[in-house]
Design a protein around this nucleic acid. Structure first.
Length: 602
RNA sequence: UGGGCUAUGGUGUAAUGGUAGCACAAGACAUUUUGGUCGUCUUAGUCCUGGUUCGAACCCGGGUAGCCCAACCA
């Protein structure tokens, strides 16, 4: 009996409909009380956030109810699959924090499937069809009209068997013969109209080499693999609902072939379907993602704009952020379109607890503290993460700080100074007082010269502000009693001119300008007869990547390892790009901070 | 137009015949050395229609709308 180890907290939360089903199956002792699932990716591309939802389900439910989940590569089509993807898939699953029982391959079962197929032929349940694919398609009928039987449908089993073996000899041209299951050409379920079991490919398989020339189709592989592997709950997405009946049929056949004893209802895999993940402003299909990489729209599968796991990782999401998001949207049978904002919110929530706060100025404006001694440098203490708290809820400081240097000449954000910001502008300007984070309280004078120009502002010939001057209150140093006084202005972030490092900041927005790019592309393809990248172009966001090379960051950030979670204080969450070096620092913007000021329209 | 599936605030989800709740989003207030975080409050929902029932988001009938199925892909 599988051990059910749900924590109290989890038990309070309601189980989703699949977990409930698993729980009751275990309670009823189905499959001997065993729980086994599988995550079955086709190794023909990189895993994306939609797969993460499936992974969280397949591995999660096994984990939650004391079962095991295998990783099974669904490698029945050597035309599209590659070992490159296998490694990436394994890496991404591990990164998400899941462990498989074992790694399996559909190709592990090729021999069994072949023998089973021969048995089906001898049983009169399968036949070799020698028609062209066009002829077969024409006979298939339509959803509203029944199909017609193939002229080869009732050929002798011995003949089919002989031809089937020929199909694997390498001497049969692809397309000349297929093996079909003899079911019902009039079935309202299109999958029952004599589905194809085997086709000739005459291709080397990256795993089985030249052993096979004919390969089984998905429908003739999946349920049988589940059965042979001992899977009890075969969980997949909703588009496989129409396959469910066929899955069940082949499972009963294979049990018969194997001669396994016992009631079929008591020991067999069962398929369960949940809604797959749709995100607005996001394109998920592997086929289209491949086009984006090939056409150079993005810089590879791990481009931070990609919805791939590796792209999202490089963007700066933590595994927990992704898992929390998936947990929030849940599993149902409703075809939902999720708002990307929900994912961003889950990301902020998680990164808030783990990101190291640093000071970075992305659009620098020089600030001179006129009354601060020239050449003087002070070491200020900055908290790494204020959300790191002890039991009483106080921020832990021990080992949670770093040094930031303060001097006479600083950079602040251009946005943080306005000559005439108005009453609601709580930042710096003539006659305004603000606090510099971890530093001093400073103020700009509102003195004007004879022409009515503010003395604290230096402008270039075009009237752009190039430098501002302020004075500091020497008693207001952070941590000193004089720092306690309340001021009207906000607290600004800053870096010291002398102690900051130039860095490259890459800002990302959605790749798409429309909520549902998949449908938009499809429609555009249809209306204008264009395909591939040309059908996508009108919907691509030209500003999905903007690179800022003028940013400055405090020295502390120089040696942080790749993929470190950072918060540029008051701006957003950022991540150290894997290509970043101490000589050329690169940061990727993960997601901005919530900004109620900007939203209010200023 | 055949078959299958689905419909709960703007979005996602819970309530499994018995008080329509939660999260995000939006708005307001408070707090703040991040206009962040945390906290308090507000706005807003059972697709339509008939039935069964003491009682229906839930069960049944009929509409309507959306999704999936006619690959030698998975």
């Amino acid at each position: 009996m599988a051990e059910i180890n749900i924590t109290e907290q989890e038990e309070k939360k309601s189980l989703n409909f699949i977990e409930q089903k698993v729980k009751s199956d275990l309670a009823e002792g189905k499959n001997g009380g065993r729980l086994q699932t599988r995550f079955p990716p086709e190794p023909n591309g990189y895993l994306h956030i939609g797969h993460a939802k499936a992974i969280a389900m397949d591995f999660g439910v096994a984990q939650k109810f004391g079962g095991v989940c295998n990783l099974r590569m669904d490698d029945t089509n050597p035309q599209k699959e590659d070992t490159e993807y296998v490694e990436a898939i394994e890496r991404d699953i591990k990164w998400l924090g899941f462990q498989w029982g074992k790694v399996c391959y559909a190709s592990d079962y090729f021999q069994d499937l072949w023998d089973f197929a021969e048995w089906c032929i001898l049983q009169g349940r399968a036949y070799v069809d020698e028609q062209t694919s066009e002829e077969i398609a024409a006979q298939k009928g339509t959803p509203t009209e029944p199909g017609t039987n193939s002229p080869y449908r009732d050929r002798p089993a011995e003949e089919s068997l002989k031809l089937f073996r020929e199909m694997n000899s390498g001497n049969v041209e692809p397309g000349k013969m297929i093996l079909r299951a003899k079911i019902d050409m009039a079935s309202p379920n299109m999958h029952f109209r004599d589905p194809i079991m085997y086709r000739v490919l005459n291709m080397e398989h990256w795993r089985t080499g030249n052993k096979w020339n004919a390969y089984p189709m998905y429908d003739f592989t999946h349920g049988q693999s589940d059965y042979l592997e001992g899977v009890t709950h075969s969980i997949c997405t909703l588009e496989f609902v129409p396959h469910h009946e066929l899955y069940d049929l082949f499972v009963t056949w294979i049990k018969e072939w194997r001669g396994d004893k016992g009631d079929i209802e008591d020991n067999r895999p069962r398929q369960f379907e949940f809604n797959k993940l749709n995100l607005n402003y996001t394109l998920m299909s592997k086929r289209n993602l491949l086009i984006l990489t090939k056409e150079g729209v993005v810089n590879g599968w791990d481009d931070p704009r990609m919805p791939t796991i590796c792209g999202i990782r490089r963007r700066g999401y933590s595994p927990q952020a992704i898992l929390n998001f998936i947990d929030k949207i849940g599993y149902t049978t409703f075809d939902a379109l999720n708002d990307i904002k929900l994912m961003e919110a889950a990301c902020r929530e998680d990164l808030n607890t783990r990101a190291i706060r640093v000071s970075a100025v992305v659009n620098p404006l020089k600030l001179v503290i006129d009354n601060y001694p020239e050449g003087k440098v002070e070491e200020m203490t900055a908290i790494n993460n204020p959300e790191l708290r002890d039991e009483e809820g106080n921020t832990i400081t021990e080992g949670n700080t770093h040094i930031i240097h303060f001097s006479r000449e600083l950079y602040i954000e251009q946005e943080d100074f306005m000559e005439d910001g108005g009453k609601k502008f709580m930042r710096l300007g003539p006659g305004k007082e603000v606090r510099l984070k971890n530093g001093y309280i400073i103020a700009c004078s509102d003195e004007q010269d004879e022409q009515g120009n503010f003395k604290c502002i230096e402008k270039d010939e075009n009237g752009n502000i190039v430098c501002v001057h302020a004075t500091y209150d020497p008693d207001s140093k952070s941590g000193m009693p004089g720092a306690d006084r309340k001021i009207k202005g906000k607290t600004l972030h800053w870096v010291s001119c002398q102690h900051s490092i130039p860095c490259e900041v890459r800002n990302y927005e959605c790749l798409w300008t429309c909520e549902n790019p998949r449908d938009a592309i499809k429609q555009h393809e249809k209306e204008n007869g264009v395909r591939g990248i040309d059908a996508m172009r009108p919907f691509l966001n030209p500003e999905s990547l903007t690179i800022n090379k003028n940013a400055l960051i405090e020295e502390f950030a120089k040696e942080l390892p790749a993929l470190s979670y950072l918060q540029f204080q008051r701006i957003g969450y950022y991540n150290v790009d894997p290509d970043s070096t101490p000589e050329h620092l690169i940061f990727n913007k993960t997601v901005g901070l919530k900004d109620t000021w900007q939203k209010s329209g200023k």
